[in-house]
């Protein structure tokens, strides 16, 4: 497979970036997108040029490290997969592929295709936790009865890997799907009730402080999320927030 790659190159956070064209040949359809990027970087290395920097870690769709806006969509044209699970068979010989970093004011570019997603960490730190007494007499988790549907829904919310595709896909660069998933995974469980009021208020406050946009319910985040996190989470977050504002 022979491809033309249009890639965002940016030396560092303070430099001005630009799109650059690269021709690449010998790409197999069974390669993952990141393996194709590896081939490109090997070629660049061999020519003595600076390789393209991009985030990756597990390459199994679990860690949430890989990102990339591919042909205008986060994680590319496939559904329910991260970039590392995207295969080159989704493209055709002779295609031109545009590769950009996730764009949001709250996700500043560090270098090339790598963006700073620590805004998500700060939202999580603002309230995405529960207090557990670990003094030696910890209660057996299985002794707390939890409705099967609530347990399932909490699990689906907790499946969010925090990759940032929701922000990248949203026309408003909103982080409400991520924030709502992280709130929901606790809101549905008895362990999450102790800090429920503070959690939703603090996490939403932090989300706003980071400079993300507002959700306008286009649903793009849900479609592009590699873990299929549902918009129901945003509705739940809004309910939790309104309820917490009245209580607290």
């Amino acid at each position: 497979m022979k491809l033309t790659l249009k890639i965002w190159r940016q030396k560092d956070a303070n430099s001005k970036g630009k799109m650059m064209d690269y021709a690449i040949d010998g790409i197999d359809g069974d390669m993952s997108f990141l393996e194709m990027m590896d081939v490109l970087n090997e070629n660049l290395n061999n020519k003595g040029e600076e390789p393209v920097e991009f985030d990756h870690d597990c390459r199994e769709g679990i860690c949430g490290s890989c990102s990339l806006q591919i042909n205008g969509e986060p994680h590319g044209p496939d559904r329910l997969v991260t970039t590392c699970q995207l295969h080159m068979r989704k493209f055709n010989d002779g295609d031109t592929i545009t590769i950009e970093p996730f764009r949001a004011k709250a996700f500043p570019v560090i270098k090339d295709l790598i963006v700073d997603r620590t805004a998500f960490d700060r939202i999580q730190q603002a309230g995405g936790y529960i207090s557990v007494n670990t003094s030696g007499n910890t209660q057996d988790a299985n002794s707390i009865p939890i409705d099967k549907h609530d347990a399932d829904d909490a699990f689906y919310s907790a499946a969010c890997i925090g990759c940032g595709a929701c922000v990248a896909a949203c026309k408003n660069a909103s982080a409400m799907l991520f924030t709502s998933a992280k709130i929901s995974q606790y809101a549905l469980l008895p362990q999450g009730q102790v800090e429920a009021v503070d959690r939703v208020q603090n996490m939403v406050r932090q989300m706003d402080l980071e400079g993300f946009g507002n959700c306008t319910n286009t649903g793009a985040c849900e479609i592009e999320c590699p873990k299929g996190i549902s918009l129901e989470n945003i509705a739940r977050m809004n309910r939790e927030y309104l309820s917490a504002s009245v209580k607290g």
């Binding site: 249009k6 965002w8 799109m19 806006q69 042909n71 205008g72 969509e73 044209p77 545009t98 950009e100 764009r103 949001a104 004011k105 709250a106 570019v109 896909a169 026309k171 408003n172 660069a173 909103s174 400079g211 993300f212 946009g213 507002n214 306008t216 286009t218 649903g219 793009a220 479609i223 592009e224």
Partner: peptide, 17 residues
């Protein structure tokens, strides 16, 4: 919302999702 994305995408396929 406009201010939340200061650098626009070179290619943005909004109709896909």
């Amino acid at each position: 919302n406009t201010r939340a994305r200061t650098v626009k995408y070179a290619k943005y396929k909004g109709s896909a999702n």
